[in-house]
């Protein structure tokens, strides 16, 4: 084999290695989803979705868990979206270069890398104990809101950065104030980017388990939460609890609950990707 042929072979080997890697991740995901479906689909029925938890696997359902997840989703969104978008707007439009902005930027990058369980410890001390919210939905949602704040801020900044400078200049030249320009031009023009980021952040919040275990969300809650001050459980904690039990019935339950959780998360990701693609096509 001459040198050129050898090089060609090596080149192809690298290429196929790359394809193999790309597929391996996806194959792992596929195997996993198939396995979950095979385990859990048989258990997934209306009764499972509308039943309270129970000591007997055949009787147990996920009513409290999924309603808790919906509660947490809504409350976290209510808290995190306004704060995150506002902070992003401030950093991108009001204070881009100062020492404070620099410090906050490094800080946000660091916060994005803090393990989620640490947020749980923070939430336990601040919300559960000092603010005396107990292991309530509100305490959990505040904790998760802090956790996803960096994601929303970064997404907001990136989305705002794509708004052409000429649009802002035109608005200023017509006598608009800074806030008028931001609220009437910048935010509408960057809305799809911000929404995409927010959905991805919320999808992360919905799947989080560890911080809520730390703040004391309970695995066994025999009633559906009615107010934000109620104790709660969520799908991931219910899954964790069932996985840790030896009875096979609970494992099946866990798989069925995972199908619901994954459905929730994948739909959110799908919507985010759809909005992003649509905005990109419009931009071209």
């Amino acid at each position: 084999m001459n040198n050129a042929a050898k090089n060609k072979l090596k080149d192809n080997l690298l290429k196929y290695f790359g394809i193999l890697c790309t597929l391996s991740g996806l194959i792992a995901l596929a195997i996993f989803i198939i396995d979950i479906l095979m385990d859990g689909l048989q258990r997934l029925d209306w009764e499972f979705i509308t039943s309270l938890p129970s000591r007997f696997p055949e009787k147990a359902g996920i009513l409290t868990a999924w309603t808790g997840t919906v509660w947490v989703f809504c409350l976290t969104a209510l808290i995190a979206i306004p704060i995150g978008v506002a902070a992003g707007v401030y950093l991108e439009e009001y204070n881009k270069k100062g020492a404070l902005a620099n410090l906050l930027e490094i800080n946000i990058a660091n916060l994005a890398g803090v393990p989620s369980i640490i947020y749980g410890i923070l939430g336990l001390e601040i919300f559960v104990r000092i603010l005396n919210l107990g292991g309530s939905l509100l305490a959990g949602s505040f904790t998760l809101a802090l956790l996803i704040l960096p994601i929303i801020i970064v997404a907001t900044r990136e989305a705002i950065r794509t708004v052409p400078k000429t649009i802002k200049e035109a608005s200023f030249a017509l006598g608009a104030t800074k806030w008028q320009t931001i609220s009437r031009q910048v935010l509408p023009a960057s809305a799809s980017g911000i929404i995409t980021g927010v959905i991805l952040a919320l999808s992360r919040a919905v799947g989080e388990t560890a911080p809520l275990i730390v703040i004391g969300a309970l695995a066994y809650v025999p009633f559906v939460a009615k107010t934000p001050m109620d104790e709660f459980t969520i799908l991931p904690i219910q899954i964790f609890n069932w996985v840790s039990r030896p009875q096979h019935g609970f494992i099946i339950n866990a798989a069925a609950a995972i199908i619901v959780l994954l459905g929730f998360v994948f739909i959110m990701n799908g919507v985010a990707v759809y909005i992003r693609n649509k905005a990109q096509r419009k931009g071209q």
Binding site: L26, F32, T209, I251, A255, L261, V265
Partner: peptide
């Protein structure tokens, strides 16, 4: 097409990965 699919790997909740590790 592949990038959003790979991003899904990061979107799967970790408790679900735990199940995968233990049960599969």
């Amino acid at each position: 097409t592949i990038k959003p699919l790979l991003e899904l790997l990061a979107a799967v909740p970790t408790v679900v990965y735990g199940f995968f590790a233990l049960m599969v």
